[in-house]
């Protein structure tokens, strides 16, 4: 699987993401400038975290309109993998590649702290190296991570098994107290219908090294690059 990272102006976790991809894949990802439109030869497109266009207007809104996104949409329609983390998740919802929207945190404050999230299913290209129900400790760093969709959309996501991760407590239980940003149904990450597009707010790429925050995120990248999973 060959990976590329899209650079929008204002993105700032692209280096973190490149380290994680390189760690799992054994080679550095291609860097894609936001004006590029040729993504041929890539299997995985990653939209990293940060503040694209300063997050002015709405988080991810302007990045969603940039030239590269047409190519990302075509890649997704061909069944290619797209991973959006934090601002990348926001871009994916703004671009209509994932349903719903990310509103301001219910606390109205930026949250930069560890969260625990639960792996909802482990039969996807992103999660097969985890156990279903496994609890991961991953850092959040966002002001707008409060997942919103109307009730019908939420029901469809649940019914189709497209909720990838949920905020939970250390024991894996979902509760209001364990939902840091007010997300609907404690949703931390969702999949597209074909489960090839994943968006999530916390940062698995910051958890690939025991010295810097633990390794709970590594298996997500290893899942993607593992040849064994069909």
């Amino acid at each position: 699987m060959k990976a590329g990272i899209v650079l929008f102006p204002g993105i700032n976790r692209e280096r973190d993401m490149a380290l994680a991809l390189e760690r799992a894949a054994g080679r550095a990802p291609r860097v894609i400038w936001h004006t590029e439109t040729d993504l041929d030869g890539l299997d995985l497109i990653v939209l990293p975290g940060g503040f694209s266009y300063g997050d002015y207007l709405r988080c991810g809104a302007m990045a969603a309109q940039s030239p590269v996104m047409g190519a990302v949409r075509a890649h997704a329609q061909r069944g290619g993998h797209v991973l959006g983390v934090c601002n990348g998740f926001q871009v994916l919802t703004e671009a209509g590649l994932l349903p719903g929207a990310l509103l301001r945190n219910a606390t109205l404050r930026f949250i930069a702290a560890d969260a625990t999230i639960r792996v909802e299913r482990n039969d996807t290209d992103y999660t097969h190296r985890y156990r279903a129900g496994q609890v991961l400790r991953v850092v959040m760093a966002h002001g707008d991570g409060n997942y919103y969709a109307d009730a019908a959309t939420l029901d469809r996501l649940e019914g189709d098994g497209l909720v990838a991760f949920r905020y939970c407590d250390a024991a894996g239980d979902v509760s209001e107290a364990a939902n840091p940003n007010g997300s609907a149904r404690a949703i931390a990450g969702i999949l597209s219908r074909n489960r090839r597009v994943l968006g999530l707010m916390p940062h698995p790429e910051n958890h690939i090294d025991p010295l810097t925050g633990g390794t709970d995120g590594l298996a997500l990248f290893e899942s993607l690059f593992a040849a064994s999973y069909a």
């Binding site: 930069a112 010295l211 925050g213």
Partner: peptide, 25 residues
């Protein structure tokens, strides 16, 4: 400090509150 992103860059070994000084690789 929970309103400050202390981990971007992926080099933070000791975050605020974890040690007498911050440690950044």
């Amino acid at each position: 400090y929970n309103q400050y992103d202390s981990t971007v860059g992926a080099q933070t070994i000791r975050r605020p509150g974890a040690a007498d000084a911050a440690v950044v690789r």
